[in-house]
């Protein structure tokens, strides 16, 4: 078991290495002078020089990469080209709102989506199933920001139940936090619910066709026990996998949602950095989110043995 965990953790290294290479080359391989690209159209020669110095653009590629990655391993992600602040400090300040939003979203999504999927599979081809499936396809088809604006329009502008924008941390109290976080979380959850409900339904349908479900029926096991004891545990691995893979969706959702609801998190930071071409910040954000994605999926991978005794390390 321990040696398996060690091996799995080790297998993450080449992936993260390749991510860093992609991120590094993205700027360098873009046609044209990277410094000119970053500085924008009306840059002075001094600005160009400052950028070249800051990012070491005059050195050979390999030297640049080694210096850059060595810095990152020491926790030095460089400084923002715009504000001159250390990138890591910039990110650290913004991380809180995004994490609390993401956690709230996942809780809502899992609590809503798994029962939805289970019931749809149980009542396969009934109106409940069609309703769940329609909602799920719709969830994939509406742009996230449209969901956000519609919720904003209905609950804040028309009904005036909730404050329209802004953010209060959880430390300010649960009510003020939820008041402002619930609309963004629902916005984010819409696509996540669609994804998880769909996968839960598909996995449950597969499992319900298995021989051992027939065996359980032949023993006289009732429907509820078949669904929640025999089937759901067997369907857990694909469901857990999709929750992890869906994390990528969550990140792009966070970018949009924070923009709409004016939440000072990682997403807003990303958009601001992109619009200002603050490349050190962009690099750091891609690297960090990719690391978090890889870590979450690693944890989910390792958790499979909790659901399925056939997976032993």
């Amino acid at each position: 078991m321990l040696s398996y965990i060690f091996k799995r953790v080790l297998s993450v290294v080449p992936v993260l290495f390749l991510v860093s290479v992609f991120v590094f080359l993205m700027l360098r391989l873009t046609p044209g002078d990277p410094a000119a690209i970053l500085a924008g159209d009306n840059a002075t020669p001094e600005t160009l020089q400052r950028i070249r110095d800051a990012m070491g653009l005059n050195e050979p590629l390999l030297t640049q990469y080694v210096k850059w990655i060595a810095g990152i391993l020491r926790g030095d992600f460089g400084t923002s080209l715009i504000s001159g602040v250390e990138v890591l400090d910039l990110v650290a300040k913004r991380v809180g709102p995004s994490i609390s939003l993401a956690v709230l979203t996942i809780i809502i999504a899992v609590l809503v989506a798994i029962p939805m999927g289970v019931i749809a599979a149980w009542k396969h081809r009934s109106w409940v199933d069609y309703l769940v499936m329609s909602f799920s396809v719709l969830g994939f088809s509406v742009p996230v920001f449209l969901v956000g604006y519609v919720l904003l329009l209905v609950f804040s502008v028309k009904l005036g139940w909730l404050p329209p924008q802004g953010f209060k941390p959880l430390s300010a109290g649960i009510a003020p936090f939820l008041e402002r976080a619930i609309l963004p979380a629902l916005t984010l959850a819409s696509i996540y619910i669609a994804l998880i409900a769909r996968m839960t339904r598909a996995a449950m349908l597969d499992v319900l066709n298995e021989d051992y479900i027939r065996t359980a029926r032949a023993k006289g096991v009732g429907e509820r026990r078949i669904l929640f004891v025999h089937a759901l545990k067997n369907a857990a691995v694909p469901i857990a996998t999709i929750v992890g893979a869906g994390f990528a969706l969550l990140i792009s959702g966070v970018v949009v949602t924070e923009t709409i609801f004016n939440i000072p998190g990682i997403g807003r930071l990303t958009v601001d950095a992109v619009l200002a071409r603050d490349y050190p910040v962009i690099q750091a954000l891609i690297l960090l989110t990719a690391s978090v994605y890889v870590a979450i999926n690693l944890l989910i991978d390792l958790s499979y043995s909790l659901f399925d005794p056939r997976i032993r390390y």
Partner: peptide, 9 residues
């Protein structure tokens, strides 16, 4: 590695 990077970013 490509999958690990959020597509929107």
């Amino acid at each position: 590695a490509l999958m690990a990077m959020p597509s929107i970013l």
